[in-house]
């Protein structure tokens, strides 16, 4: 069995990060989880700049759309704009169900889009499904270093 993933969670709602961590704790494989509540910080982390010079390179980014300051879409575009991050799998995870928001995420290079469900069980199930697919059968891109 594969070992757990290194996941970067970007969400300004600590309650949702808590729920995601709860869901991942219930998975068979244990993932290493880094959570950041701010898009600009997440970008620094990914670029390994400044205080994040020694940061690990995550295998998967789970990114919320509504973030303070720089929104998720802008962060996504910035990620795709960097050659070393162009291949990084990014799962958009957002409460928005607007067709417009979903389309824009795909346009900007998101790998997929998962809506945050309203009920606890469905939320936990959604996060587990993300882990099950990306950590399970999906083959992740080799790192660019």
């Amino acid at each position: 069995m594969k070992s757990g993933l290194r996941l970067l969670l970007v969400d300004d709602n600590p309650a949702d990060i808590g729920l995601a961590r709860e869901a991942l704790a219930r998975c068979v494989r244990q993932s290493e989880i880094i959570s950041l509540e701010n898009g600009v910080e997440a970008l620094s982390f990914l670029k390994r700049g400044g205080m994040y010079a020694d940061a690990i390179r995550p295998d998967l980014v789970i990114l919320d759309l509504s973030l303070p300051g720089c929104d998720g879409l802008t962060i996504l575009r910035a990620i795709r704009g960097l050659p070393e991050l162009r291949r990084m799998p990014v799962v958009m995870f957002s409460t928005s169900r607007l067709g417009r928001d979903i389309a824009r995420c795909y346009e900007s290079g998101a790998n997929c889009y998962v809506s945050k469900p309203g009920s606890l069980n469905e939320f936990l199930a959604a996060v587990r499904s993300i882990e099950e697919f990306w950590c399970g059968f999906a083959a992740l891109p080799p790192a660019i270093d």
């Binding site: 729920l19 409460t95 009920s119 606890l120």
Partner: peptide, 17 residues
Amino acid sequence: SHDLQEPLRMVAAYTQL
């Protein structure tokens, strides 16, 4: 549909947890 449901989602999820 948006602003009311967000905090409610938190209450519902965490009371259940």
